[in-house]
Design a protein around this nucleic acid. Sequence first.
DNA 1: CGACGATTTGAATAGGATCAATGGGAGTGG
DNA 2: CCACTCCCATTGATCCTATTCAAATCGTCG
Lengths: 232, 232
Amino acid sequence: MRSSDLPQVRSLSLFDNMDDSSFDTLMQTAYLQVFPAQLELITEGDPADFLYIVTEGCVELFARSNGRESTMGMVRPVGTFILAAVIKDAVYLMSARTSQRSKVLLIPSENVRSVFQQDENFARSIVVELANCYRNVVKEHKDIKLRSAVERLANRLLRLHKSQGNTGTLVLPYDKRTLASLLGMTPENLSRAFNTLKPYGVRVDGMTIGLDEIDALKTLAKPTPLIDDPLT
Amino acid sequence: MRSSDLPQVRSLSLFDNMDDSSFDTLMQTAYLQVFPAQLELITEGDPADFLYIVTEGCVELFARSNGRESTMGMVRPVGTFILAAVIKDAVYLMSARTSQRSKVLLIPSENVRSVFQQDENFARSIVVELANCYRNVVKEHKDIKLRSAVERLANRLLRLHKSQGNTGTLVLPYDKRTLASLLGMTPENLSRAFNTLKPYGVRVDGMTIGLDEIDALKTLAKPTPLIDDPLT
DNA sequence: CGACGATTTGAATAGGATCAATGGGAGTGG
DNA sequence: CCACTCCCATTGATCCTATTCAAATCGTCG
């Protein structure tokens, strides 16, 4: 891999307080690769050969069962995925595909596990990363079990709005079809949910969403940090 | 705590390869306590004061939002809960209550974190435990996003049946009201789902469920280890 | 300009929730 | 031991949400 990409990876909280030698060990066998959009990187059920780190672009985690498919999460820079499978030396529980042209770092999972055994700082960093991943899934699960579709959309819009600077306007970071699946509904139903939110000041213009009555929207959405705050 | 309980705790995979001194440090400040049924042990949003380990009985993890409530999981001996919050020194994302008279070990979270820093074997064990918890929630999430209510019930019955020895009969480990919430449905709907499964050889007799046509039930349920196998 | 995919809209349907009422134990107290 | 009570579970009826199917519209890209 190019050495110009190393500092960025090194600064990832997963790696930033590990030994230099351990880091070098990991990186010596790592690939940094660019993939086109819509390429399936991993398939659920396959053995975990690599740990993946998204450095540019965006990767969709999804799952299939029966004939159905559902988006489980979106990974943007700089984020890892399927860490748990790598650590446990188990099969992937989710599939992943690029949702746009993306640059991804691949570290052979054997190396991750061996450095995990050698470098205790790395082991502790992994704990924190795993704990974050775990809490995020718990929040997703609460979201879907405790809220209606319209409420889920309203809260997601508030969250995107906040992360984009509370400007009164937000841009959807992926297409509506994907958003719908992420929120656990059909594209048709998402469209209708947007209409339901119109009286609450939600303006839809393609991928750009305007929020004109934040307070009204919040009254409907009833956001709570225990579901909607990515850091809590 | 009574020293007679120590070996059992020590044998937990979370503790079984840590230093004796670390283990002693943890246990010196730990409480082993018996709680009556239906007692709320922790409430979501509260700071994580203790790590909890269920040694007898059963604890229900649940979440509230708006006016709604949903069961998120059941912890039976010997299992831990809210490990992620303890490690991160964050607030609990879920509440917990005893579903029956239960014996629970409480370890002050400060101690868990300090031993986590000192004892690298403990740190690594925590990673494995966290990875398991993480993968279990992912499976729950896939279950609810990819399956209908009837399919979820069918698969849950098959899972319980297997864990109880494939005898053609299983006993529900908690009341139907809780099972319904765990499966993401109302008690009324659970009752109807059982009726829907009658043609597939599912006999209901109180808490005892008979499965007379496993193959037919499997054809309907389409179980997959990527959702239904607790170890995968 | 034309074609294709994504989104929206409409209509019909299905799945699940809610409301209401009844049956059925388990536990309590007489 | 029995009657009473309470809570859980079941059943019925109805409502509502969300899915499905179908068609029209919009946008983008070649």
